[in-house]
Design a protein around this nucleic acid. Structure first.
Lengths: 218, 218
DNA sequence: CAATAATTCAATTGATTGATTGAATAAAAG
DNA sequence: CTTTTATTCAATCAATCAATTGAATTATTG
């Protein structure tokens, strides 16, 4: 191997190494929604602060996250959309080729086949003609950190109450954190029971944003 | 972490783990050109056969490669274009954010800034009007496993002789194995010295193919 | 100075494990 | 039955080293 390739590949393998941990992948998942402080993350992923901090150092060294300081807290966020793309790419590859992943997806998300999803482009087209109502099924905080244009936030824990108030003759599209997030599945199921025409967005908010589609901040 | 996410992330981390090795990354680089037998690969990357075989098992377990048997030999190839995309994604992320990678790129490829490259889409547009001559600077074997439409193969070791025979008033675009391959840089440099108007294609053949652009087999 | 937030340190656990090689084995071809 | 090709096995060397935790430390705010 040429010395250049050797050195470059060592760097790449370092980045890959930083992704080779279920805990860190989960941290990145939370960060792909919005920036978070260390102790917020430590609660979300269920690790203690010291350990969480350690994992974040590893990700920082691989240049996947950066820190911002604000008062006593430090907020970590992804270094860019390309990080989301990288993880999406990793997921897609695993999903396509790893039988085990397919099996898992099906055993947990038996809807997957039934509720065929709408693509980002399709949603965008239909939105232009004001044909659809878009629901963001994520906690309020993540919604405010960025969401689809004209999306209405319905936090997952308020789903059932809120659905009763919905009045619309438009089709409904729901999305949430990403392909492995169950919020939007639950929402679509509940909406259909109420008689609405509802569909899931193929991917979640991070993928939408990373693909360069418009994002609104409210 | 929910049991589903836990299990899925364990699978993803397995795939990432398989990428966390300079040797395996190099193997994948060679496989992204065309399928290869074990001993062919072992020579290319400079590892003995047993060791190369072991690395290939790891990649196979991560579902990044598959084997085809033909007589006494076993040919390994990537499971799909998404694998190339995954590696491209990994590279892009490292390139954008890791200072070390940038430094390496610049110290070895000082041309990078000078010889600004042409994008895939741009090349395709200009090709339609028959404005450009496309050169494939890779070994003959890789060329025959697939190349850009109407590309002319100029193996790197024959570069200097072959250039003397080129007669053309069209602009020339050269490409090779990928962004870290130096063949096309050398070609462009040599061509310019001869007075041609020559440019590099931004990425190499694997990226072209993975992006879904047309591929020709000769 | 006290309280809060996060990092760093030292130590433990637990695990591996990861790359590598020579030798044995298997599978196919002639 | 021999040759070729690749896999698998057993063993070695080399590391690590990775995740985790409690305690000490640093930095900031009030």
């Amino acid at each position: 191997m040429s010395p250049l390739k050797q050195l470059l590949n060592e760097q790449l393998s370092l980045v890959a190494q930083s992704l080779a941990s279920p805990q860190r992948l989960e941290i990145l998942e939370y960060l792909s929604q919005t920036e978070r402080s260390v102790d917020e993350l430590s609660q979300l992923v269920g690790l203690n602060v010291a350990n969480t901090s350690r994992h974040l150092q590893v990700l920082k060294q691989a240049a996947l996250v950066i820190v911002r300081r604000e008062g006593k807290k430090r907020f970590y966020k992804l270094t860019g959309n390309d990080v989301t793309n990288l993880i999406t790419s990793l997921r897609k590859t695993a999903e396509i080729h790893l039988a085990e992943v397919e099996r898992l997806m099906h055993s947990y998300i038996s809807y997957k086949d039934d509720l065929e999803a709408i693509s980002a482009q399709e949603l965008l087209d239909r939105s232009k003609n004001d044909e659809v109502m878009v629901l963001d099924i994520r906690p309020e905080k993540e919604f405010h950190a960025g969401h689809l244009p004209n999306a209405i936030n319905v936090p997952p824990n308020e789903l059932l109450q809120r659905i009763s108030y919905i009045e619309s003759d438009k089709d409904i599209v729901a999305y949430c954190r990403g392909p492995y997030c169950l919020f939007s599945y639950n929402a679509v199921e509940a909406l259909r029971e109420k008689g609405f025409k509802a569909q899931r967005l193929e991917d979640g908010f991070p993928e939408w944003k990373a693909a360069g589609y418009p994002v609104q901040h409210t």
